[in-house]
Amino acid sequence: MRSRRLFARGALILGLVFLYAPIVSLIVFSFNNSRLVTVWDSVHSPTLKWYGTLVHNGQILDAAWLSIRIALTAASCSVVLGTLAGFALARFSQFRGRLLLAGMTTAPIVMPEVITGLSLLLLFVALEQLIGWPRGLGAVTIALAHITFCMAYVTVVVQSRLTGFDESLEEAAMDLGARPATVFLRVTLPLILPAIASGWLLAFTLSWDDLVITQFVAGPGSSTLPMVIFSKVRFGVTPDVNALATILVLIVATGIVLSTIWMRYQQRRRERDEQLAAAANL
């Protein structure tokens, strides 16, 4: 028992080092003065000069702004569609197209991105030929593509939350006279709101992050942040990308750490309440 646990612990530590070493090195070298990112220039470092160049890089700022707008749109739309799909899958026992919907919501998650990207691009081209819409490729087609693969993730999150909670809550609401729409708005929705929120965040991150599908459907005019980064790093390392990465990593890390702390606080308070209630059992 001992040896196995020690082995597993060791692997865990090794794995965490493996996961974090690249990120740490990325951050460290963002303060390096040298253009040769990985050779530490101990005379002039640490420096914030790459952060300075970043602020004046119009291409990166434009791309970041486009990415944010697309990610906001994609996250918001995919949350609506994904919640509908997750609700249908979790709550409607049998309906026509159930297997189809179940299949179409899990497949995009594992589908190689080149295939999804190519197929969406060919769809948009065919649509334009047929009905004249969308006119050319750009932000609209990127957003449509992102909504499609993001909603798959939201569906899974919402569906698993709904399968996890007691269906008798919804039945109780109906029994007390609430019509299906009221049941959803007053009982189901507030209860799955945390899942929807994390689905939204997940969708935002995925959209913000996507490169391959976006490259297919972006067209020549619009470049998202990942596309700009990719074109820069394709032929080697550049120090301003390190600075950009550091900023992004810090934002995400702060968000995740804060939300984890908040969730643990809520959990603790709840446990304390439950203990008090049990102690006062009369």
Binding site: P22, P226, L248, T260, M263
Partner: peptide, 30 residues
């Protein structure tokens, strides 16, 4: 929960940048 958070956290940061980080580690002068 802490360990799970540590596993998931990199997933929330850019995939592209994490792959890029390996260039800096694996290069001839990395």
């Amino acid at each position: 929960p802490l360990l799970l958070m540590l596993i998931v956290l990199p997933f929330w940061t850019s995939f592209l940048l994490r792959v890029y980080a390996w260039i800096g580690l694996l290069n001839n002068n990395g």
